[in-house]
Design a protein around this nucleic acid. Structure first.
Lengths: 160, 160
DNA sequence: TCAAATCCCGACTAATTTGCTGGGTATTAT
DNA sequence: ATAATACCCAGCAAATTAGTCGGGATTTGA
């Protein structure tokens, strides 16, 4: 379980998708512009999110990305693990007998802590964020080509 | 709030200190040997922990590090923040008006999530780990010079 | 059909972080 | 005095992070 700016980028981008999910796909250009992340870097992150089935891409004009599952099935832990590709580094680095025959105790304690953290983050889903009252008032973007196109084609025009 | 191997090293090292607190100072050489971290890297981490008053150093032979406060006053969040020097990167990177005059919403949502995570980790203190039943059986080290010296000089011989 | 919008992909570069090496100095128990 | 230890620091190498570049491939509107 790792938590870096990379994970933060992914989580905030996914929040963006969840908030605007009803309006059809969100373009990476929008997210790039909004959150100040480079487009290609976002593409790399979304490639991982796509492989983890957390998002799905829609090609062509008016396309973009949308959530790959209902928002209540996507947890913060899911997102972070998808982009961070956590290798298992909780095992004792070749030093198992450092306490007189017992396995390294602190590693076990850390593993326990790490598990608790994972459970905590796994219990928080994207649906929590879109259910807030302050979301609805600003759920429609302005000043971007994508939103203009989206306005021409309301959500129900795009098959799910 | 960042969570990397650096933070993990610091937390496990602090667990080590907490577990062996009754036996006098723990040397960095011990931790280095036990957890497979280089001595100098540990020195860097402990310099930060010391500045944050989480540990205090005892110089000279038989010295080492001990906790700077009672274990129930040291949270996991304290340790991670001490070594990671979290700069405030939650603010909108120069792009405040990305939602039609409103502040960037996802940044607020992330800040909320980050706060919850902090509270979670701040609620876990080192005292939780030393109160476990499996600790007492292995609370005394073997095979190290430091422990032999420590045995010669029981804890009460070292003024706090 | 054609061009635009967009996802997709791989390689490259720059910045930052991580972790280590190796040299010191200060303090203190013996 | 000597050895053990904390403490300090400059620099270096590897890994990771972040971003760039240049090209596709696919879908859609005109």
């Amino acid at each position: 379980m790792k938590l870096s700016t990379k994970g933060r980028y992914a989580v905030t981008a996914m929040m963006d998708l969840a908030i605007h999910d009803r309006e059809g796909p969100v373009t990476l250009a929008d997210i790039s512009h909004c959150q100040g992340i480079s487009l290609s870097y976002l593409e790399q992150l979304f490639a991982k999110l796509r492989r983890a089935k957390l998002v799905e891409g829609v090609r062509g004009p008016g396309g973009g990305y949308r959530l790959g599952k209902p928002s209540h099935q996507i947890s913060v832990a899911d997102i972070i693990i998808a982009v961070d590709e956590t290798i298992d580094n909780t095992k004792c680095q070749g030093l198992k007998d450092c306490n007189g025959g017992n396995k390294c105790l602190t590693h076990k304690l850390w593993a326990d802590l790490s598990d608790r953290l994972f459970e905590f983050l796994d219990g928080i889903t994207l649906s929590e964020f879109i259910s807030r009252p302050e979301i609805k008032t600003i759920s429609r973007r302005q000043d971007t080509t994508a939103s203009r196109i989206a306005n021409m084609f309301p959500p129900n025009a795009i098959a799910s």
